[in-house]
Design a binder for these strands. Structure first.
Lengths: 373, 373
DNA sequence: CTACTTTATAAAGCTGTTTTAGTAAAGTGT
DNA sequence: ACACTTTACTAAAACAGCTTTATAAAGTAG
């Protein structure tokens, strides 16, 4: 029971949000057309638009074509009302993007993580890169309203702590959010890169308009991002989708993690070791047994979640797209409901798109503040 | 973007719903206390309550104790405003419940499914039982506002069709909703019994107040009901949680369903067959290999979903609660995040509770209609 | 030029909310 | 018993935001 009661003030706020959303999503519109879309009367639309113009959330954008009467004065969403930063720390590269309120990229940076991947120096490197990008690329008077940083490991979003990132040195329980906020001086949100990729792919990539889908990352690490009802599912302990721990060989339930039996031991780029290893690293060539294991794992995901689609992403998926057929053959034999299996459309930029989307959603929640001011 | 714009009329409707919810959830309250809870002013609360009294959704219920001033006149939710019916068709028994608007049971019926389990006669039997219960037990002037029927198989809720119920004869693509609506003359909702059990267990059983959990049914059939963010997850094709198809032995990915390799072949009550069979039947004794397979399957569920808890239900779980320890041992070895594994608190009535909850939620959505009338 | 259409604003009225003020009914203290 | 305080509720007035109706402005079509 989260909704609150309503009075005149909240009524206006509510209607302003609706109008703003309509203008943003449906492009430049006349006041009359906004009235039709929102079912608000013309005078109300006019008053709301006047308010939105005052706080610069929308702007006049010329006249439209007449359709037999007075020409409409178009109103459009002001994409320069603010900006968002989306950064992603990968196993090998750091990627940054500065985007406007429409989610369009203003600037982009790619730099190597460098030799020293320990928390402090790496986070300092990220913060410096963000500061440089903002200083160079951000127009005067445009505030950064939200900053999202993706990390290659399980992340506790409420505390902003990267619980474990096996591909980076010493990344266990790193309070990344606090460190970044101290360096940047603005609120920061930290999330898992696989989740961000799933959000990105859902928003701008292969699976727009789908209610549910699963993004499967095949790269240095294995992971899955689960989107249900249009929202990412992170699980009770931020563990959802950690499919490196899936077991498709029950006889080996009692072996140590990293050894045979675990999916991660079979699908990857490095030679296998027998000793226990940390998660999110996988090894061995992409031979048929590996594909069958992966296919069965995907089938199990399909059986449990029953998503609208499954999308393969990450370096391995991009360089071996042909694996899709075999995976589907196996998975659809095991799971009669196995959905289509697609390949990422955003490639390694997927988490950046996801970060932008998350940031924009975040700004949406903050909008009331700017409206009352 | 589902929310609509607001005017005075909607404002009042919105506030009425909030007040009603407060009265229902927090019990008999004075108008003043409702004002405190809702943050509405005293005159507004008085007006809203007057309206709710008029349509009999709430009723005056005497005076409360003074706390140093005039005694409060208490207002309480009218549980007799209407009633709901929850029915469940099992493999062996039909269960019915009539409940008031607080979800308290007014009456209950249990009858065998009988020898003829084909769709028409069985549904007629259910409809007759419902009619008898209503005629005998329902007070005059109390309308049935929602009827939910659970079926032991995959169900398309939007069409009201039971896609497949292997334990009943000839139940393939049965338009159960339409058949029941024709017999009863009121709107009916049909759902899968495992999903209903999960909802019930979440609402009144083992896992109240949990945001996410998975209910695992171990009975004549195998299945799982997945509750996420307090809502049941049914999947894109109503297939979510059909864990009889989980595969924990990748070498047998290519064998026919029902043969070795599939979970369902190993956890059950009847002797195994080698020929392909329909889903949701399982066989074989509860030997340790079966438990290990089941444990690994539960681990895989935990890895993918990361729920707050897993609850075992169904006849087998009730009669062999001791299996929990071994299952947890296996599952927690495979999945480090494996949550506690509990046993159902509602037993075979779980789907009935879930049906009542679903029905009450359904009525909630219809409330505005009764308020405008 | 006239008739009609479309867009936008102005004036008036309606609904529902809050604030303010007041009444009712109880408890508290001397 | 009496005055005073506390709490519950209601009545009246003021306020805010919405809609309807009317009007102005600016275009198209014949």
């Amino acid at each position: 029971m989260k909704t609150e009661t309503m009075d005149s003030r909240r009524m206006r706020l509510h209607n302003s949000e609706q109008v703003l959303r309509i203008v943003r999503d449906l492009g430049p519109l006349s006041r009359t057309e906004i009235g039709r879309q929102s079912r608000l009367s013309a005078p109300t639309v006019a008053a709301v638009i006047a308010e939105l113009l005052r706080v610069r959330m929308v702007e006049e954008s010329g006249e439209g074509k007449s359709t037999g009467g007075r020409r409409p004065q178009l109103v459009s969403f002001n994409a320069k009302f603010g900006a968002v930063v989306s950064a992603n720390i990968g196993a090998t590269t750091i990627r940054l993007v500065l985007a406007d309120m429409n989610g369009e990229w203003i600037a982009r940076r790619v730099l190597p993580v460098g030799d020293d991947t320990r928390p402090e120096p790496l986070i300092a490197r990220v913060a410096d890169a963000i500061k440089e990008m903002q200083a160079t690329e951000l127009g005067a008077g445009i505030p950064v309203l939200s900053t999202i940083v993706g990390a290659p490991g399980m992340t506790d979003m409420t505390r902003g702590v990267v619980l474990e990132a096996a591909n980076l040195e010493g990344w266990v329980d790193v309070p990344a959010r606090d460190m970044l906020e101290r360096a940047l001086g603005v609120p920061v949100t930290v999330d898992n890169d696989v989740n961000l990729s799933a959000i990105g792919e859902h928003w701008r990539g292969a699976r727009r308009d789908m209610k549910s889908f699963v993004f499967v990352l095949l790269a240095t690490g294995l992971g899955a991002g689960i989107v249900l009802e249009g929202k990412i599912h992170r699980g009770n302990r931020w563990y959802a989708g950690e499919i490196s721990r899936l077991n498709v060989d029950f006889r080996e339930w009692d072996v140590d993690f990293g050894a045979a039996g675990y999916l991660e031991s079979y699908a990857g780029e490095e030679p296998p070791k027998s000793a226990p290893r940390s998660p999110r690293r996988h090894h061995g060539p992409l031979d048929d047994e590996t594909l069958v294991r992966l296919g069965v794992a995907i089938a199990n995901i399909a059986v449990i979640i029953d998503p609208e689609a499954i999308v393969l992403g990450g370096r391995v998926a991009v360089s071996h797209p042909e694996m899709r057929e075999r995976l589907f053959e196996v998975a659809s034999r095991v799971a009669p409901n196995c959905p289509e299996i697609g390949i990422t459309e955003l490639g390694e930029d997927a988490p950046l798109y996801g970060g932008v989307k998350l940031a924009l959603d975040h700004v949406d929640e903050l909008l009331p503040r700017y409206l009352v001011d």
